[in-house]
Simulated scan of single mutants.
Amino acid sequence: MPLLRVHLDSDRVTARRILQLHQEGKTHHESREAARDAVWRQGRTPAGEPVFVGITNGRRNVQLLYDVEVYSDTAP
């Protein structure tokens, strides 16, 4: 199944907190749901749970990165 990379806007403090949660083996449910919603808005159907990949290094505009498996038969 193809992977779709999702970029979610965030601020530096929140992004670092979410990164720390994932490093501790925990999940930030709100950002995971936001990633799933972003996939639906792009007209794709998620095939699994969003997987946290990391954060960008932006000074002002930090983004959370998620990979989401999508069904290949859904229209982009």
Results as ranks from 00 to 15, higher is better:
Q42P: 01
Q23Y: 10
T74Q: 10
R44I: 05
Y66K: 00
T56E: 08
S72T: 09
D67Y: 07
L4E: 13
Q63K: 14
A34C: 03
H28E: 12
H7A: 02
R59I: 05
A47Y: 08
V70W: 10
Q63D: 08
L21P: 01
P76S: 09
L4R: 15
R5A: 13
L65Q: 10
D73C: 03
Y71W: 14
V51Y: 03
K26D: 03
R36G: 05
G25C: 00
P46Q: 06
T74W: 04
E24H: 12
L21G: 00
A34F: 04
L19Y: 04
A47M: 07
V51E: 14
S72H: 09
H22A: 09
F52N: 02
E30M: 10
L3Q: 08
A35C: 03
M1V: 13
V53E: 13
G54T: 06
R36S: 10
E33R: 15
V39P: 14
S31E: 11
P2C: 04
P76W: 12
V13T: 15
V6M: 01
M1I: 11
D11A: 12
Y71F: 15
R60A: 12
I18V: 15
R59E: 08
E49T: 10
L19N: 05
N57M: 05
S72Y: 04
E49S: 11
F52H: 01
R17H: 14
V70G: 12
R16F: 00
V39A: 13
P76C: 03
E30L: 14
R5P: 02
E24W: 02
Y71N: 11
S10H: 00
E49V: 11
M1R: 11
G58V: 05
N57K: 07
R36I: 02
Y66G: 01
S10N: 04
E49M: 10
H28W: 00
D9E: 12
M1H: 13
M1N: 09
L4A: 11
G25H: 01
V68F: 14
L19Q: 11
P46I: 08
R36A: 09
Y71R: 13
W40C: 02
L19P: 00
Y71A: 12
H22D: 06
A38P: 11
E69R: 14
V51W: 03
V39T: 09
L8F: 02
L64Y: 07
V6E: 00
T45Q: 03
R5K: 15
V70L: 10
P46A: 06
R16A: 01
G48D: 15
S31K: 08
A38N: 10
L8A: 09
I55W: 06
R44C: 13
G58H: 02
R17S: 14
I55E: 08
P46N: 08
M1P: 14
G43F: 06
H7C: 00
D37R: 14
A75L: 12
R17C: 06
P46D: 05
G43W: 07
T56Y: 08
H7Y: 13
E33D: 13
Q20H: 07
D9P: 13
M1Q: 10
P76T: 05
P76H: 11
